[in-house]
């Protein structure tokens, strides 16, 4: 695919040229960097530090109306689902882009989910090569790479004064066309520089785990007493699941607000006891031990069984943000060494 060069000081012009898209980018709010719809390119924060949340919510929102009920209680799809303006998510890290790759089969297969797929198809992902990984990043251990274009439509690499812009897909090509006025061709020197950066990136990842054989170890030692030890610190909050780029579990609730009822889907977390609680009061996963084990089982066994890859992109958020330092990589090592 084609390669371009984008001068950093012309980034705003490039974003402005995307007038046919709704542009989501990391913005700084209340001391946090979060992905939000921007109206002014200047809002975009592209230092890419401190993103506690993945851009998952742009395509799979935390709360989403599935159906609206009219006054006769007949169910209808909400207006605006079809014919939405295409979206661009700017500043996606390669691990988060792979996260969408992990979500795709869940929502595509068997019963295609129109809510996810419609937004997914009309959303373009513009990624940034990760030149400075975080301390808990471990993407290279789960098949990722800080400079991987997988799942992205466009990949930008920071060369200092310019971005090296690689078009990955035909969707990305369309965007490059719209912003063509501010793009130029890279020199062969810049091309070499970019390749050098890509080559260096994986070495900067500090945390590693050889995941080979983990799936069978989890299966084999499913009833091991060690799981109890691993979950001792866990306080059953939803941070690991809500900040995870591949977690997709949801609840469906009918809610009535000011006389109007909607059926919504809302993220749910397998860390909550209510998640599996039967109406009869029976709970197949009553304690933190079963729940933590299930999460690791889902990521490193079930997902492989279902889709052939671990359901983890190694972004490290669940480790960094866990209030009690439940450390996925450390836990995997414990299981691996059983």
């Amino acid at each position: 695919m084609e390669h371009f060069l984008l001068e950093k000081n012309r980034l705003n012009e490039f974003l402005s040229a995307l007038r046919n898209y709704e542009v989501f980018a990391p913005v700084r709010k209340v001391g946090l960097t979060v992905f939000e719809l921007i109206t002014n390119p200047k809002e975009a924060m592209l230092d890419l530090k401190n993103q506690p949340q993945s851009p998952k919510r742009v395509i799979f929102p935390q709360s989403e109306i599935l159906l609206v009920f009219d006054k006769n209680n007949a169910a209808k799809e909400p207006k605006g689902r079809v014919g939405q303006k295409p979206q661009v998510v700017f500043g996606v890290r390669p691990c988060d882009a792979r996260g969408f790759h992990m979500l795709d089969p869940v929502f595509e297969r068997e019963y295609p989910d129109p809510y996810y797929l419609q937004k997914r198809q009309s959303t373009l992902l513009v990624g940034f090569h990760c030149s400075e990984p975080y301390p808990n990043c471990f993407c290279t251990s789960v098949g990722g790479n800080p400079s991987s274009p997988e799942g992205l439509d466009i990949l930008l690499t920071d060369l200092g004064e310019q971005y090296f812009l690689e078009v990955i897909t035909s969707k990305g090509e369309q965007v490059a066309k719209e912003g063509a006025a501010v793009l130029s061709s890279p020199t062969s020197q810049q091309q070499t520089e970019k390749e050098k950066l890509s080559g260096m990136a994986p070495q900067k990842i500090r945390r590693t785990i050889d995941t080979e054989g983990i799936a069978s170890k989890i299966e084999k030692h499913f009833d091991h007493s060690l799981w109890r030890e691993l979950s001792g610190k866990c306080i059953s909050c939803g941070i690991c699941t809500y900040t995870c780029p591949t977690c997709h579990c949801f609840d469906i609730q009918d809610e009535r607000v000011r006389g109007r009822a909607n059926r919504l889907r809302i993220w749910d977390s397998c860390m909550f006891p209510e998640y599996t609680l039967h109406a009869s009061g029976h709970n197949p996963r009553p304690t933190r031990t079963e729940r933590l084990k299930n999460r690791m089982y889902h990521k490193f066994k079930q997902n492989i069984d279902l889709y052939g890859v671990p359901g983890c992109v190694g972004c490290g958020r669940c480790i960094t943000l866990c209030p009690e330092n439940v450390d996925l990589v450390a836990n995997l090592k414990v299981i691996k060494n059983l």
Binding site: K29, V30, L32, V34, Q53, Q62, I235, S236, C237, G238, I239, Y242, T243, S269, F272, P323
Partner: peptide, 8 residues
């Protein structure tokens, strides 16, 4: 508006 309702 930022709350994730993670119950932490």
């Amino acid at each position: 508006a930022r709350c994730l309702r993670c119950y932490a």
